[in-house]
Amino acid sequence: MSLEQQKTNLTHLERLEAESIYIMREVVAQCKNSVMLYSVGKDSSVMLHLALKAFYPARPPFPLLHVDTGWKFKKMIAFRDRRVQELGLELHVHTNPDGIAQKIGPFTHGSSVHTDIMKTQALKQALDKYKFDAAFGGARRDEEKSRAKERIFSFRNAAHRWDPKNQRPELWNNYNARVSKGESMRVFPLSNWTELDIWQYIYKEDIQIPDLYFAAKRPVVERDGMLIMVDDERMPLEEGEVVREEMVRFRTLGCYPLTGAVLSNAVTLPDIIQEMLLTTTSERQGRAIDRDSNASMEDKKQEGYF
C-alpha cells in the first residue's frame, strides 16, 4: 500500500484534533488579545495540550486565566501551578475581591450566589481588567442541552451577555471573530468533542490530569444524595453527618463543596473509560449548580458564565 492510500482517511479523533487546532489558530490570527480559560479539569488539560500542538514550535501566544473561587480542591491548585511552571506559560489567577471581602462561600451563601459572585462576576472582572477580546473555554456541546446550540465562536456584548437569538451563523469553517471595542468572543475549540473523545484522547496522547479523576481512599460526607469530599477544615458538618473513607473519584472538577464524588475502583484510564461507558448517568449529574432549574445553564450563560 502506498503512503497516500494508508493515510487518506483520518480517524475521528484526528479530525477533532485538527479542527480544534484550526479554531485556535483562527482566534490568534483574527483577534488582538486572547486568553485561555484554564479550569484545571480534564477538558482544560486537553485544550492546553491542543494549544501546545497548534503553535509548535512556538509557545501558545496567549496567557492562561484561572478564575479561582477559593474553594477549589487543593490538589487542583497544586496541579495547576506545577503544569504552568513545567510548560513555562503565563498564568493570571483572579479571585473576586468583593467576594473575598464579603466572605462569600458555598456553605454560607448557597451554590447559586457563590457561583454567580465567585465564578460569573469574577470572570467578567478578569476579562474587563485585561481587556481580552477573545477567551477560549473548554465547554463541549454534548454536556448540556443549551450548550448543544452554542456556537464555536460565541459573541458577547460589552456587558459579556450571551443573547442566544443574536448569534452569528457559522458557515463551513469560516468563523467571523470581528468585534467592536468592549465586545468579545468566547471560543470553544472542543465543541464537537464528546466525553468519550476527551478520555480517549487523554489516553492516546498521555495527557496529564489531576489525580482526583482516579479512584482513591478519600474522606467524604453524604449530603443531599451527593458524596462531598472534606477537602479542608472550612467544611461544617451537619448533625448526623459522619466523615468516612471511601474509594471515590470525580467525573468533573470544580469547587469541592459543590462537586459530587462517585464510588469507584477505577485507577487507570481504561478503567475510567470503561466505568464511564457502563454508567447510567450523565457527567453533569454530579454538579450541584445545574440542578436548580431546567434552564439554569442557559440563564447563567446569558449572565456571562461560560
Binding site: T8, L10, E19, A54
Partner: peptide
C-alpha cells in the same frame, strides 16, 4: 508537528 516531522499530510490535517 509537535509529534515530529511528517512524511505526508492529507486533507483535513492541521
Amino acid at each position: 508537528t509537535m509529534d515530529g516531522p511528517l512524511e505526508i499530510a492529507v486533507q483535513h490535517q492541521s
